[in-house]
Design a protein around this nucleic acid. Structure first.
Length: 143
DNA sequence: TCCTTGACTCAGA
DNA sequence: CTCTGAGCCAAGG
């Protein structure tokens, strides 16, 4: 419930989980990175969505189903944000079991392990609008 | 009623 | 590179 919430929290969380489930083993995404692929509410200012959405994702992940790979979601600095009840070591070891390497500052390199969903997947699952014919697709910018 | 507390991120120092 | 503060707001003690 931190810092406002989406108009439809349940629906927003469902989108988050859907995307999280698509992250392959050994790869990671940041909260804010996930938010970029979820369309903001129509009447919401895009700038405001950019500010708030990472916490919306965090809020959703707090209630993430155990059968979803919640460990593959980390913060934008490449560090793990411990899930309450599990502790930081749990998340780190889960990722290491998938082959993710942490550097000496406990961080993951996005260049190497960061993951971006295929456009076809996004379209198929309703995350972005289909490209307007032969025009440049509205691919969200990475960090 | 007031104060604390959130799986966040980015710019600036 | 690390550390701070701002942005923002609802629920519980």
């Amino acid at each position: 419930m931190p810092f406002s919430s989406p108009p439809n929290p349940k629906n927003y969380a469902a989108k988050v989980y859907e995307l999280v489930r698509a992250i392959p083993a050994g790869r990671v995404m940041a909260y804010g990175h996930i938010a970029v692929f979820i369309l903001p509410p129509l009447e919401m200012d895009p700038g405001q969505y950019l500010r708030l959405s990472p916490r919306w994702v965090g809020q959703a992940m707090a209630n993430c189903p155990d059968d979803a790979p919640w460990q593959r979601v980390i913060n934008s600095q490449g560090k793990v944000s411990p899930r309450p009840g599990y502790g930081p070591m749990m998340q780190r070891s889960l990722l290491e079991q998938e082959g993710v390497i942490f550097d000496d500052k406990e961080r993951v390199d996005f260049e190497q392990y960061g993951w971006v969903p295929e456009r076809a997947w996004l379209v198929e699952h309703g995350f972005v609008a289909p490209p307007p014919e032969d025009d440049e697709p509205p691919q969200p910018a990475l960090f």
